[in-house]
Design a protein around this nucleic acid. Structure first.
Lengths: 194, 194
DNA sequence: CCTGCTGTGATACGGCCGTATCCAATACGC
DNA sequence: GCGTATTGGATACGGCCGTATCACAGCAGG
């Protein structure tokens, strides 16, 4: 056992255990003991690196946000279609469980969601760690040629809120990913009709 | 038959305590003891009328759904504007916290939401107790004259999902009720333009 | 009148929780 | 090479949880 371990790395490994537990069985299954067991370390270690449970939950969420933003940036940079429509579509499909990683993110967010409104520290982390995507989409829509009378802010608000909810509906089996993508593309067609 | 007391009535009173606790402090604050204290009865009584905690949570949710459907029916019957647009608007504004009763409903739903995906019995109650409103809206849109190329199913899906999410955003203070109503009316204008 | 079922109280039990404490092993600065 | 800060294990503590048990009041039907 090395003397000098990489705290940051350790914390990320333990946070990943939080993600797995929260995604599979909800936040109420995330206890210090369960996290330790899932991460393959002792209870004491989890205490050692995070001090308190609230801290653990907040940091695990922050790490998840970081990873999400990196993923979004990477996907934006990598895609061939750099049109406004293409960028908007990429931003919105980040909110859907289209691969295991995005599905994990969504499940963890769902697990955190309720607690977010009864625990102030979690609420802060939940709200402040992410840039409001509505503003981004609104700006992008302003930059494009839309049909007469189209209102970027109202369009962005419903798109973001709707796709966010439809992503959760996919998790819950109320819709398939294909159905949601069809709905999304229908609305993009409507907005960006040539 | 019951000896003295009205079981149904008792259960509803206790369920109301569940609502209050869940709305204020989340589902994790709903313990048998807290519910008993909030309802002003003994722990034993809660056990007596509901047997188990899962039962308590499921029935409390069912009562809430019942009340919501009655409220929707009443509002639909009472409103002067019986046009398709008017009915669609009423159905959708039922999803927003526009008065204390709808706000309570929304807060309770938010509290239940996460647990819904880790507890099978709650999941069943959550999904099966409510008629899928998307189908209703889709039918209504089919019945109306929409702009060329408008697709009722896709329009209904985004409207319902979006307004559902925006209602929660109002609870969280990310939007005001006025902003959300403006977004809703913008989209209704778009669909029902004369 | 008594037997028995319904309704209610007080309290006990075992379990998991978050946190705290005590202690052992390591490896670097000196 | 030795002390000491860092890293980690084992275990204890007090609290709340869901559920179970024991006791008992009052009305019902024989």
């Amino acid at each position: 056992m090395p003397h000098r371990t990489d705290h940051e790395q350790r914390r990320r490994e333990i946070a990943a255990a939080v993600w797995r537990l929260a995604a599979d069985r909800g936040l109420e299954a995330v206890s210090m003991r369960e996290v330790a067991a899932d991460a393959g370390v002792s209870l004491r270690l989890v205490q050692y690196y995070f001090e308190t449970k609230t801290n653990l939950l907040v940091l695990a969420l922050r790490y998840l946000h970081e990873r999400g933003e990196q993923r979004t940036q990477a996907r934006l940079a990598a895609q061939p279609d750099q049109s406004v429509r293409g960028v908007v579509r990429t931003l919105l499909t980040e909110l859907l469980p289209l691969d295991p990683e995005r599905e994990l993110s969504l499940r963890v967010h769902r697990a955190y969601f309720s607690r977010t409104h009864s625990d102030p520290r979690l609420a802060y982390a939940f709200v402040h760690d992410e840039t409001p995507i509505e503003d981004l989409i609104t700006d992008l829509l302003h930059r494009a040629t839309l049909p007469a009378g189209a209102h970027p802010r109202h369009e962005a608000n419903l798109l973001v809120a709707g796709i966010t909810r439809l992503g959760l509906d996919v998790l819950g089996g109320r819709f398939t990913a294909g159905e949601v993508l069809a709905t999304l593309d229908y609305h993009l067609d409507r907005l960006f009709q040539a």
